[in-house]
Design a binder for these strands. Structure first.
Lengths: 147, 147
DNA sequence: TAAATTTAGTTACCTAGGTAATTAATTTAG
DNA sequence: CTAAATTAATTACCTAGGTAACTAAATTTA
């Protein structure tokens, strides 16, 4: 009963947060997947698609789709670098200009959703979840390891 | 930075756990969505689709799909009751017979993924996440409330 | 250096879940 | 008792993300 419940709560919370985020981003024509890429690009500067995949822990195909969509909207541009396989992604002037407004909306949402959760609780929750995530990633490989 | 990170960790953990669960259930021809329904039916007995939706916090359309699939596999049957709008869902003899094997595999997986997380930590994590989830659901309505 | 292997990205197809609109049955008002 | 409103489920279409198979470029290896 216990472990099932934990799984279910995490899953439900993830969906609920995504729903809220999409609702918050809707006025700007953005969805959570696109927002996550823009957020990372703003923090880290230009990156290849591979680096974005690794950083966001997403497989390559969904990343391709998200980036193609961001390009269509004019929020991101692709540049070919030294390695002609890789595509370097960077924000456009347009999205750099609009970014502060998007971020403000997201931060306001985060604050609203965390009303009633103390800083300490949030901090500890982050710590527990990170450690659990690491465990899952480590222990998942044991099933497929050969000896 | 903090609240973004929390969101990201929850999302990533949810996906990683689903991936593991799908991998565990694959030999039985089941996916997580189907398993979650079978698990609830086993615990609670026969239920209408609406009750399943409420219990699992999933919208009606995905539930319709999951149930149709379970019916095709012969794991579940639909019965019309008093209220001829509602469809009552119950497990078949086939799935009742196979259930213990499925459950054993899932419990073994849960235990494996929780290696390195103490019972206390798991308990507290559950508590924090539940309280956060309740918060999110409450505070989400404030945005759309009229006064 | 030529051949084999690896790597970055894309395409096609899959599951999971959400919203909006629709249908049919049931309740509630008038 | 009839008309309006509500409710359970479905259909159609959307986003998010995953796997497998493929292409093209770069790197290893023989």
């Amino acid at each position: 009963m216990n472990t099932h419940q934990l799984f279910h709560t995490i899953h439900q919370l993830s969906r609920e947060l995504a729903k809220q985020a999409n609702h918050t981003l809707q006025p700007f024509g953005l969805y959570t997947a696109q927002w996550s890429v823009l957020f990372v690009l703003k923090e880290k500067g230009k990156m290849t698609q591979k680096e974005l995949c690794d950083y966001l822990a997403v497989e390559a195909p969904p990343m391709t789709r998200t980036i193609q969509r961001l390009m269509k909207q004019g929020y991101v541009k692709q540049v070919t670098g030294e390695d002609r396989r890789a595509k370097i992604i960077e924000m456009t002037e347009q999205s750099k200009a609009a970014y502060p407004e998007w971020e403000a909306a997201v931060l306001q949402m985060n604050d609203r959703l965390l009303i009633g959760v103390s800083d300490e609780q949030r901090e500890y929750m982050q710590q527990l979840l990170s450690s659990y995530l690491m465990n899952v990633k480590e222990n998942s490989q044991k099933g497929t390891l050969h000896e």
